[in-house]
């Protein structure tokens, strides 16, 4: 059985050993995840065409959902993720990533500029030039988070 391991580096080797001894196969692309509380991922597995990529979360500017597809933007490229936005919100470090609408999560360090609107909205321009809206629902959460 394939399992994805999401634990701290200190515990990784020991858990890896125990799970493989029990017959589990550790695979970053597995749907089943074993995670440790308050440990956040440093890499995401994204798919572009037939290829799988290991994405450093530091390079991810934002993640958007389009219908059933979840797209991560990194280095000017688009990668399809298998996790739902709700799950990504949990596994990404909340100090670095913030949910700004029902369909988008942005990396705070990749926000280039913020354009406030009168109607309780922000329009974010990311470092890769793409635009992301902060909707009314997340307006005050975003404001509080950034302290603006």
């Amino acid at each position: 059985m394939k399992i994805r391991l999401m634990v701290s580096e200190e515990k990784y080797a020991e858990i890896y050993k125990q799970l493989t001894a029990k017959g589990f196969e550790i695979d970053d692309g597995a749907d089943l995840i074993l995670s440790e509380k308050n440990v956040y991922v440093k890499y995401l597995i994204g798919r572009r065409g037939e290829e799988m990529f290991r994405l450093d979360v530091k390079n991810v500017t934002h993640i958007e959902s389009f219908a059933h597809d979840i797209i991560a933007y990194s280095g000017g490229e688009e990668y399809k993720l298998s996790e739902r936005l709700r799950r990504l919100e949990e596994i990404l470090d909340p100090k670095d990533f913030i949910r700004v609408s029902n369909s988008a999560i942005v990396a705070v360090s990749h926000i280039k500029s913020i354009r406030p609107a009168f109607t309780q909205k922000f329009l974010l321009t990311m470092t890769d030039g793409s635009k992301v809206d902060v909707t009314r629902t997340y307006y005050y959460i975003f404001k509080e988070f950034l302290g603006i």
């Binding site: 705070v108 926000i111 913020i114 109607t119 307006y139 404001k143 950034l146 302290g147 603006i148």
Partner: peptide, 19 residues
């Protein structure tokens, strides 16, 4: 807010929203 963002001076006292 863009000055704060550029300086990385985030987490201060939020300003009053335009509305």
């Amino acid at each position: 807010i863009n000055k704060r963002l550029a300086e990385g001076n985030l987490g201060g006292k939020p300003m009053m929203s335009p509305i």
